[in-house]
Amino acid sequence: MAKPPFSNDIRTLRFLAGEMTQGDLGDRVGVTRQTIAAIEQGKYSPSLEVAFRIARVFGKPLETVFQWDDAGD
């Protein structure tokens, strides 16, 4: 599978948010722990809704959580 043309800082943001687990984040966003793991590893591109929900959990704007990779253009 091709990697999505963007990266994310979810792992770092989870750590900064009191070492939140993937399962906790998944519960708050409404997806499974495996889906959070897949997003973190760049194996799955979330829908816009899930991306916004993740950003809202951390209280950050979307572009702080997900960054477009210019090399992927």
Binding site: G30, V31, T32, Q34, T35, A38, Y44, P46, S47, V50
Partner: peptide, 8 residues
């Protein structure tokens, strides 16, 4: 009891 999410 975990519900199917968008990836599933």
């Amino acid at each position: 009891h975990a519900r199917e999410d968008e990836r599933d």
